[in-house]
Design a protein around this nucleic acid. Sequence first.
DNA 1: CCCTTTCGTAACCGAACGGTTTTGATAACC
DNA 2: GGTTATCAAAACCGTTCGGTTACGAAAGGG
Lengths: 130, 130
Amino acid sequence: MAVDQLDAVFAALADPTRRAILARLAQGEANVAELAEPFPISQPAVSKHLRVLEGAGLISRAARGTARYSRLEAEPLRRADEWMQSYKRFWSESFDKLDAALAAYLREPVESHEPPVDGPVIDTPREDTP
Amino acid sequence: MAVDQLDAVFAALADPTRRAILARLAQGEANVAELAEPFPISQPAVSKHLRVLEGAGLISRAARGTARYSRLEAEPLRRADEWMQSYKRFWSESFDKLDAALAAYLREPVESHEPPVDGPVIDTPREDTP
DNA sequence: CCCTTTCGTAACCGAACGGTTTTGATAACC
DNA sequence: GGTTATCAAAACCGTTCGGTTACGAAAGGG
C-alpha cells in the first residue's frame, strides 16, 4: 500500500530532469513552458515528466486560464526520507564501530570452525568520492 | 559526476525487491541463496538485483569460498538523504504555517481539484537552492 | 578425482521508459 | 469570429528493466 507509493516516488526521483523540475518548483509554482525552458527536450516530454511526478504525488496541478501550474508537494518526500531513517544508523559515526563488531560476530557462525585462510574475508572497501 | 550516482541510487531504491534486500542486509551480511530465499524469483534475478545495488554503491561484495557475501554500504543512502534535506523545509512545521499564510495570501478565484490555491510565481521564502 | 554447492553470465522475452512528431482542445486576445 | 498561446493525448521508436532458462566456472567434500 504505502510501499507501492515508495516505488513511484523513488522511480520519479531517479530521473535528473524530474529532480531539476522539483528544484525549480521549490522556488515556487510554474507552468509547463517555464518548467520546460531549461531543458533541451520537447514540451510533451516535460508534460510526461510532470505526469510521472503527479502520479508519485510529488506535485499537484491546477489550471488557471490556459496555463496549468504545478506545485511542489513534499509529503511523498517526507515518507521517502522516513524510510531512509531506518538506515541512518549505518552511516552514523557511532554505528561504524558497532557495525564492525557486529559484522565480525556474524562472520563466525557462517563457516563454523574454519581458519580464516583465504584472503581478507570481508575487507572494508573505502572508496570515497573517486 | 555525483549527480549520476544519485540517478543510480534512486533507481535502485525504486524496486521493492531491492529495498527488501537492503532491509535484510541491515541485519548483517548474507550470501545470494539467503537473500533469494524470501522471494518467488529465480537466483539469477536476485543476482541481477545485487548487481544493480552494487552499481549504485549500496552494497559491496566479497567471496568467501564458493559463497559471495553482500554487505550494506550506506554512504549512497546518506547522499540521497542529503539531497532530500533541501526539501525538508517543505514538510517541516514552520514551513506549514508559512505555506498556509502564503497560500491564503495568494488565493484567487480558481477552481481546481486538490489544493484550492495558486498564484503567480511565488517568491522564495528562503534561498537554499541545490 | 568426481560431484555437489554456489553463483555469475549469456541469450532471450515482454513491458515500461524517455524521447519524438503530430494533432486537438480550450482559454484568451484583437 | 478568427487567431494565438498553452498544454495534453496519441502513435511511434529505440533502449532499459525485470524476469526467465540454460550453461559454466570454481571451491570444497567424499
